[in-house]
Design a binder for these strands. Structure first.
Lengths: 247, 247
DNA sequence: AATTGTATGTCGAAG
DNA sequence: CTTCGACGTACAATT
């Protein structure tokens, strides 16, 4: 029933007894392996909300950082989960295998009870490399700082992350006429929330500078929704269409 | 090397050749199984953004609905993924196993190339049961409709989901003095975005009713952040602390 | 630990 | 199909 990978980096049981499964899982957790269990189970969650999932075949993954994931055959999201930082426990109760992942602040508990275990695996690997991602809001900011004319002719950036009572402004600068400009960046199409954010920055800055001249607010994004567009007009704010660089 | 589960619901290979892995994976995709591959791989993504992940040991899951997930040993979120609706492909190139998941609108491609395959599995199961979740915003609304006094004495609900130009209001009603009241519900602690939403509803309704009397806006949530609290005061809005029912 | 803002957010419902 | 708001959002940065 036991089958070890060619270099001991995997340990797998097919159709094991609950106690055999428990031993491999406990050892896997101990060795900081990724543990997976596939089989027929019920799932209970209690914490910020509560849920119950009746019996069905699911794939459960326990990570060494304390995360737990319960996946069905549908959806990108797990049907139940637990964030990193949990304590995983495994035991047998009434002859059934039980997995529990618990955390505090807030108190949350995830409990998976198997009535049928089809397969158990423990994967011990290593992964030193981080994800390199491009096309983010930071990339968009770089693009504008390198070529401020993209925003408008004679725009001059003066600061990034400039602090205001309403939070930090993405880009702060002045236009050809020397008026203060607040720029809010979004890497994708935006809704009303971004307009509200920009509005608060502009208000805060006008109070901060206690100047008579109005502060201009410019929202930079690939596009805006209709409702957001109307809000922009209502609040006297502007919009410039720009996308993050391709690479 | 091959090991079938006791009732053919699982098929697993340990340390297979790329072509043997390809055959099991292709068959699993064909049979609408959940397919998992664990091994040393590089991952490339290109679509809304772009990313590259250099070689490391990861767990890849392909779901029959078209979702793809690449998990490292850390985090609740996959390091790379593809949403449901993709087409999975598997093939060998230069003697290496390659998985590709592609979709359109938007065009996105995820490509995983294995230089070492430690284990391949295909899980054919069934899951008829849906998740039963309690403690949601809907539960909070029910609670208030059943006992409006929780909000304030002599509050009378008149409608739920009442339409305004700014969107649908959670609960619309009137107070002891007959003034219109807009109630915005949040199941957990809220920030400035919720205040902006409520403010837009109140504005829209005041215009809609073209009445002289101001419309009251009440935010109902377990608690608010500092900044949101200040915004509420600024905008003449109110706050009532209420939590969703426990069960 | 609490707060804030971003996300390849994901998801579901409605137009 | 797009648009919109909710989510046990997760996550990182910052206080």
């Amino acid at each position: 029933m036991t089958d070890s990978g060619h270099d001991q980096r995997t340990e797998t049981l097919q159709g094991p007894t609950p106690s055999a499964a428990r031993d491999v899982i406990a050892d896997g957790i101990d060795r900081d392996a990724i543990v997976t269990v596939y089989g027929r189970c019920t799932v209970d969650y209690d914490g910020r909300a509560s849920s119950r999932l009746e019996a069905g075949d699911r794939h459960v993954m326990l990570k060494p950082d304390g995360a737990a994931l319960v996946h069905t055959d549908e959806g990108q999201q797990p049907v139940n989960w637990q964030p990193p930082g949990c304590e995983h426990e495994v035991f047998c109760a009434d002859g059934a295998l039980v997995l529990e992942s618990v955390r505090s602040t807030p108190d949350e508990r995830l409990c998976v009870r198997f009535r049928d275990i089809l397969q158990v695996s423990a994967f011990s690997g290593s992964d030193e490399n981080d994800l390199a991602l491009v096309g983010t809001e930071e990339d968009l900011r770089q693009r504008i700082l390198e070529d401020p004319a993209l925003l408008e002719a004679e725009f001059t950036p003066l600061a990034t992350e400039r602090d205001t009572p309403a939070g930090a402004v993405d880009i702060y600068g002045e236009d050809a006429a020397g008026r203060a400009v607040v720029v809010e960046l979004k890497r994708r199409r935006v809704g009303p929330d971004a307009v509200g954010q920009l509005r608060r920055y502009v208000d805060a800055l006008e109070r901060d500078l206690h100047a008579d001249a109005a502060v201009r607010g410019i929202l930079v994004a690939p596009s805006v929704t209709d409702r957001a567009s109307r809000l922009l007009t209502e609040h006297g704010l502007e919009f410039v269409s720009l996308e993050p660089p391709d690479e």
